[in-house]
């Protein structure tokens, strides 16, 4: 009974899904080149690394300096950080604020500011970390509200992709056609990129 009701809800949601380019979020093009997902590194890089992450996930944060370093040393790398807030409302709001900051051009600063925080976050700690990095929280909030439809749809899509691809949790990396669950050290990350580059 419940299963059928869920099916109907899911089915109707699928039927009502926006048409056009967002048709299949699991298509490789949507995973690597979602038009609404901000990208870092070389915009036209020859290889794209995708990371599903959460601002409160300890392994994502511990792993982030490695990701930044690899990106800095690889001019051909394009990086797409996909917000997958799994640690509750604070994480969700943090993602919304950073994507809001992106609308105003402060994406990388905001992202790195929150990735550098320690452990669990409260809303206040999120605001303080952003403010300390020079982000105007009020402006980011307004930007998010103005673009909330687009941003929230992106978050839903990220979630659909992460679960649809079969990731059990954060972090999860995609390079080429291969899925890498869990944190990756420098060597493993470079190997994954190398493997994607060689067309596997």
């Amino acid at each position: 009974m419940i299963a059928r009701r869920n099916f109907l809800i899911i089915a109707s949601a699928a039927l009502a899904a926006p048409s056009g380019s967002y048709a299949d979020p699991l298509a490789p093009d949507m995973v690597f080149h979602d038009p609404d997902a901000p990208a870092l590194g070389h915009p036209q890089g020859d290889v794209t690394l995708v990371e599903f992450f959460d601002y409160q996930c300890p392994y994502c944060k511990r792993n982030h300096p490695v990701v930044e370093e690899v990106m800095a040393q690889d001019p051909g790398l394009r990086l797409v950080m996909k917000d997958w807030p799994v640690f509750g409302p604070v994480s969700r709001r943090a993602s919304q604020l950073v994507l809001g900051a992106h609308e105003g051009g402060g994406y990388e600063t905001a992202l790195n500011a929150l990735m550098a925080t320690q452990a669990r976050l409260s809303n206040q700690q999120v605001d303080k970390a952003l403010k300390d990095a020079g982000i105007q929280v009020g402006a980011a909030e307004r930007n998010y509200e103005n673009a909330s439809k687009k941003i929230d749809a992106l978050l839903v899509r990220n979630d659909t992709q992460a679960t649809g691809l079969g990731f059990f949790g954060t972090p999860g990396f995609v390079a080429g056609r291969t899925l890498y669950p869990g944190a990756l050290d420098r060597k493993a990350l470079m190997a994954a990129i190398q493997s994607a580059r060689s067309g596997r």
């Binding site: 996930c57 392994y59 511990r62 997958w84 799994v86 640690f87 509750g88 954060t170 972090p171 869990g182």
Partner: peptide, 13 residues
């Protein structure tokens, strides 16, 4: 409930 793998993965709730 929510937990993680020591090797570096956190599950959604």
């Amino acid at each position: 409930w929510q937990g993680c793998e020591e090797a570096g993965l956190c599950y959604p709730p």
